[in-house]
Structure formats: structure tokens, C-alpha cells
Design a protein around this nucleic acid. Sequence first.
DNA 1: TTCCGTTGTCGTACGTCGTACCGTACAACA
DNA 2: TGTTGTACGGTACGACGTACGACAACGGAA
Lengths: 244, 244
Amino acid sequence: MNSQRWPDPGTTLPLLWRTAERPSRGSGLTIGAIVEAAVALADADGIGAVTMRGVAERLGVGTMSLYTHVPGKRELHALMLDRVFADAAAVAGGDWRERCAVIARQDRARYLRHPWLLELPAARPAFGPGVAAKYERDLAALDGSGLRAAEMNAAVMALTSFVYGAARFQSQARDDERDGRTERRFWQDHEPFLHLVLDPARFPTAHRVAEEARRDGDADHDSSFEFGLERLLAGIGDLVEGRA
Amino acid sequence: MNSQRWPDPGTTLPLLWRTAERPSRGSGLTIGAIVEAAVALADADGIGAVTMRGVAERLGVGTMSLYTHVPGKRELHALMLDRVFADAAAVAGGDWRERCAVIARQDRARYLRHPWLLELPAARPAFGPGVAAKYERDLAALDGSGLRAAEMNAAVMALTSFVYGAARFQSQARDDERDGRTERRFWQDHEPFLHLVLDPARFPTAHRVAEEARRDGDADHDSSFEFGLERLLAGIGDLVEGRA
DNA sequence: TTCCGTTGTCGTACGTCGTACCGTACAACA
DNA sequence: TGTTGTACGGTACGACGTACGACAACGGAA
């Protein structure tokens, strides 16, 4: 299945900036329409539902017609990513810390709105209009924080990593719930194995904490995210204020 | 392809703890051997190389024979995850902060040693021997930090999220390099589009920072990770010391 | 208006995947 | 020495991405 052909910015950029759009004959097929349909499918049923056949069917078009406008599925994924990153709005007002918090919440919300984003390669996305807008916004937020350039980059990276990881765990937990693998069911299934899982000899701390947790219950994802964000920003703040 | 059958702890736990191992007839096939082969394939060529046919071939066995011992591919993935989490060694000595740092580095190293881990559902993994050992280790590290139980959980979650996100970005970047999508190539491909990407009117900050970045160069992943880890622990430390 | 080359459209087909189904043959017990 | 339970695995089905080539719709030239 893997055709060993990798998408690269060289082939993706003209698509992203629509500088080489193919004319449509009778079908009304355009890059934009294809990406729109793919995003709709992914939002509804996950990235697994984005098949070339599925996208084509949604557009009322033959499967292979897509290949006139898009080289392949991986490039389509890159286009989808840039498409949903285009919602990155400029953040004004407040100090760098507040701006960063707003951005982190924005990014988290986008991941939860489009959880398939978390499955896509995103380490070094091609600079389409959407990714460029997000890049601009992130940099502008940290502008004037007083950090050196290298520190600014590292800080953005730390925030991005945290937001990504937190969103991914939450997204997977949501999938679990949707498919019936609830918290309740989880512990029900573990009941026959609790003597192994919570063996006080092998796992003393786990045994003890499980007791406490049963009383207190787990924190929800929202407050857990806010806690981590606040701690990370506090740690960066220490650096800004020369305290650490 | 999706058979709508989801793996759950109820079916996976007996496999994880080997309480219902099927006897092997002439082939020497066991759960352990299957998991071992699958991990070897994944380490070598990624999670995509772990196909039932591939695992069977590596074991010199018919494809369908695997299904005698393992219900399906998703359960095999869960077994693989627990298998590599079993390397979680107890961390002794130092204060909570040092112990957390050691654990974070251990976890990051495991993600980079087994990057396919990052692709697996891991939000609420079934408690096999490996996952239980990691859980015990994590909790023991934070024991005695003075944080309340809810804060401890949130702190672990924040650290886990950060480590996961950072490892994922680094892993993807490594894949990019391996497949020829190097940093150099990236900017070469962008050259014809720089007037769009770095348009001073639309993206003023990006335009300016790109100039600086060209001089300074990017920080590597190691120092970037250490920066984020240090900041996050500093922020948690503020809380412990009642400073924030 | 007619013709023809260009090119958007898409039906067919191939090789991959996970796995359902079922026949076969071996091991353990009678 | 039957008899039976079950480990093993061959075949097949429906999904997938996409290579290939036939066809038809369009634009410009005559």
C-alpha cells in the first residue's frame, strides 16, 4: 500500500496557496471543495473515514477524479491541516502570559473540535496560509516578553507540546466513552484482576492511592488542563522575572 | 475493515497477565513470542510494519494461527504497549522534583526507542504488569511532595502530556529527516513562496523573526525538552512552596 | 461550422490490509 | 484403538490507495 512517495512542501505549497489550481470541467471539482468534504468527514467520523472513495462519494464524483486536483491522500491531509489552522485569530491586549494562555486554550479547543488533527504529521507543516497565520499569531503573543529568541522558541515548543499531549489524552478518553469503554466498565473489567493490579507487595503506593482515589474521584480534563497550563506559565514567568 | 469490535480490559487482561494462555502444539506459538515479534517489527519499521501476515511470517507460522492466541490486532497493540512499559524502573533518592525529572527523561527515552508507542491509544490502558509498574513508579515519585492528592494527579498529567507531546514532535521530525524531508530541503521548497509566507504586510512578526532565526539557528530537541521540563517543574515547585 | 488536440473525468484492476469461515490433522483421553 | 477437542492455516471477502488507460467535453484553428 505504501507507494514510497512522500508529500513534500515542493508539491504541497502550490496547492496550499492555490497557485496552480486546475480548471474544473463539468463536475465543479476544486481543491477547496475536496478539502471541505474531507474535513467534514473527519469531523464526523474521524480520520479513518477520510477515504478517497468516501470524499468522492460525498462530492458526487468519481473516485479517481480527485487525483486531478490532489496528488494523493497525504497531500490531502496536509491541506486539511492548513485549512483548520486558518481559524487562528490574532490575540491582542494583556501581557505575554495572558496572551499565551488564550492561545493555548484556542489550540486545545481546535484539537477537540477536530480531533483527527492529533493523528496527522505536524512536526514541520508546510507553510500554507493557515499555518502561517498561526505562526504569526504565536510569535506576536510572545513579542515583548523580554525572553531571548532561543528561549522564546523553547517556550512556544513547551506550551505546544503540553497542549498537544493534553488534548490527545482527552480526545482518546472521549473516544473510549463514546465506544462504551467507560470508567465504570473499566473497573468492572478489572475486578477479577485487582488482586494482581493492586497487589500490596508489588505495588504498595498504587494500592494505597487507589483507596484515596476511590474517595475523591478524578479531576475532569478541563481543570487538569488549566492546572498544567498555569504551572507551565508560572515556570516561564520565573525565568522572565529572573527568579530561577 | 473496521469490524466494530473494540478491545476492552475484559478480553485483554487475561492475555496481559497470561492467566488464560493457550497451549502450543507443534509451532511453539505463545502470546509472549507473538508480542516479541510484533515489537521487533515495530521498532524496525514502525507500527505500520506490524501486520498479522508480517508477524506470522517472522515466526514462521501461518497468519491465521496468531488468532488462536490473540483475538486481533488491537489487542496485540495493547500487549505491545504493556510489554515496553515494563522497563519502568523504580526511582529512589532525591526530592520529588529530581525524581520527576528522572522519570520524565526515562519516559521520553522510551518514546524515542519505541516511537510506535506514540501512535497507540494510551489514554486509559488496561493494567497489565508493565502499566501497573509504571503507575506505581509515578505515584511513588510524587509521594511526600506535600501536594494534595488532586494536585498530584494533575501534576502527573501535566508532566505526562508535556513529555508525550515533545516526544511526538521529535519523533515526527526524525521521520522527516530519515525520509529526506530535511530542514534544508524544507526551505529550498519554500523559496518560490517566500513572498507569500513572509509577506511583511500579512505576517510582520514572522517576517522579522525569520531574519533572526536565520542567524541564530534552531535549538536542538534535547535542550528544548530540558527547558520545558525545567520550567514545568519550576511552576509546580512554586505551588509546593506556596509562592503561587 | 467542423475538426482536432488537450485534458478533466472515471471504470477497471492490482496489491495491500484485517479477519471470517471452515477443513485438516494432531494430541490427549477413553 | 477409536473418539474428540482444538491448534493450525488455506481460502476468500470487502475494505483500502492508486496506476493505467478509455472516453468525452472543451477551446482554438480552419
